[in-house]
Write a protein that binds this DNA or RNA. Structure first.
Lengths: 198, 198, 198, 198
DNA sequence: TGGTAAACGAGACGGTACGTCAAGTCTTTGA
DNA sequence: TCAAAGACTTGACGTACCGTCTCGTTTACCA
């Protein structure tokens, strides 16, 4: 027992395979037809993973879809890094806005909506998607703080909500477009403040 | 149409009665168990209005629920008017935040989520709820502009999104609490701006 | 509206068409592959009647199958009537034995077995099959009694059990064949008695 | 067949423990909740014998349950022996009837029913239960024959079916009660014959 | 007495069917 | 003519249990 010839068996390989297959199938289905297409039966059929197994890995269909979506989106919106912290943040708002405006944004909205109804899925959506996005913004925000440009009294949390909450709200209700100029207006207003400066 | 000698035999009343009854039943069901409880069959059963009739008045169950909710909420959050436009707006953010934090906020979230899936219902939600809210904020915003406190270059639309988008985002994802102090932090950041003033 | 103000509305005539279609499909499936083939989904697919509707008409899949089987078997074993009551009864035992020995007997056994597990279905099997069979035997038995050949102290119930219980027992356990000679042996033993006559 | 030097390797001893544990667990589960409770997983969990092992010892869950039941019931209904062969047989019918009427009779019915669906289990039920019961009756029957009371032309097989088939039929369909008086009626009719004696 | 092959424990997996639910459509009936 | 009543189709959901399979461990015989 000198060395461990088979160190990998730590993780039941079979389980991992089923898990990965399911996520992959879900990802494809989400891309093809959004959340409505990511039916449990469809995922099961396409992945070869049985329904029963799916429900052993995830508490609900939405949770599975949320993880699949989150994992795929992990690197979907790379952070800009031009050396100008403020410009980077503004650019990120533009990118996220464009992301929400596109077909993937539709899936995001469906998932966000589904989590309202499905409390079991919400943690998955947070863990695999939202937390990642939030962490990315925190990086940008910290750069601003470090550069002495941002009020250190404002948390990254609040900054994130202020910058992206409006975009999401618009995406959900469709009451206003998600164009670049609108994104800029929001970013600008958030950064400069709504009140007039003397 | 001088006067109505035979008020009841006229046709319109029947339709109007059914409409009102359905909305009333839906309102009660929403209050009791949220959107999930406002089943078409439940609304039909409680109101005495047949399902077929419901579908003649609304394109979908969600649309009906949205109208019922919107009508009831019309005057749920009275606008403050203390003479101090900024304080009024801040107070309104607090009130709306409290509203979202409560049980009615849950119904709001369910409706907002449902409209993502149901395009037919979205216009109803906008017309009977969102537009009213938005108009209310416009009033407050206009006071700020008139008082020379707000940047006139920022539209009421943007201001509304910036102030309430974050609240709604939090309500949906539950990633941050909806307390008064949080509401104040958001209002303050939105009004003053995220960037440090030199 | 002289009389019978509300005679019919007592029982809303549940869509006879759906009922009949379902039974017909079930009957065919039973014939093709026995009870295991008479899946709810299969019945639904073949009949065009939705699963939800099936479960509104019957409490369980087995109940539906039992009714389908019972209705079809209603006239499957015509009563002999040669004028000789005893010969008629013996002939009937032979016929029933042959029935049990055949493919239809297999379905009978499956249904009987399923009703052990499914209490909701048992009443259907009794009402639509067993009762009919029992009534038929009662007729033959009554002829014997009328002819003074049978002990009037023995009920038709007991006679039926004695004549057919053994056949069913054999069919279920397969411990003994269901041939004509075996059927005759049983009939003979039942009629004459197990004990030696002095 | 000189001698068997290593007769033991035929049966691995370790096997015996697992075999016994499984049967014991199955027996307990049958007693607690009937066949439906004797789930493969439940037997495995309670006995500590893995599912894989269970399926190495028995071809199906029902077969296992059948053996467990049969072994336990082996001596459940002791044969009466009063010296009066006919009275003994009648008494036995009463005892068996009471047995079927009780909770254990329910398990018997479930097992009998399950064997209809599961051909692999039927041999186990026969070997471990039915054959034993049948052999017991043969003993009683032989006494009658030896005493010259029974028709030697009637096999023990037929006699058994005639006496107990009706009881089992009743137990399965529930169309008639399983009381002592009913048992007596059946025994009497079987022994004396259905036809009137001149 | 250490090695080795069968047997075992644990439990994930694929599969089949079940029974349930709500949405939205359509037909019948009554006033 | 309109609406109440309510049956129907559709489509998906989540669950249960079966029997198989893999993997790592234990046991018991054998060299």
């Amino acid at each position: 027992m000198a060395e461990s010839p088979v160190p990998s068996p730590v993780l039941p390989p079979r389980s991992a395979r089923a898990h990965a297959c399911a996520l992959s199938a879900a990802r494809d289905l989400l891309a093809e037809g959004g959340l409505p297409a990511a039916t449990v039966d469809a995922i099961s059929a396409r992945s070869g993973v049985s329904k029963a197994t799916l429900y052993k890995h995830w508490p609900s269909r939405t949770a599975l879809a949320a993880e699949a979506f989150g994992r795929e989106m992990a690197d979907a919106i790379p952070l800009p890094d031009t050396g100008d912290p403020r410009a980077d943040l503004e650019e990120q708002v533009r990118r996220v806005s464009a992301f929400y405006a596109g077909p993937t944004g539709e899936v995001f909205a469906q998932l966000l909506a589904a989590c309202v109804t499905d409390p079991l899925a919400a943690p998955f959506f947070r863990e695999f998607f939202l937390d990642g996005r939030r962490a990315a913004i925190s990086v940008l925000w910290q750069r601003l703080v470090d550069a002495g440009l941002a009020s250190p009294s404002v948390t990254a949390e609040t900054a994130t909500d202020l910058l992206f909450g409006p975009l999401i709200f618009r995406r959900l209700t469709g009451h206003a477009p998600l164009t670049i100029s609108e994104a800029d207006a929001i970013a600008s207003a958030a950064l400069e403040g709504l009140l007039r400066r003397e």
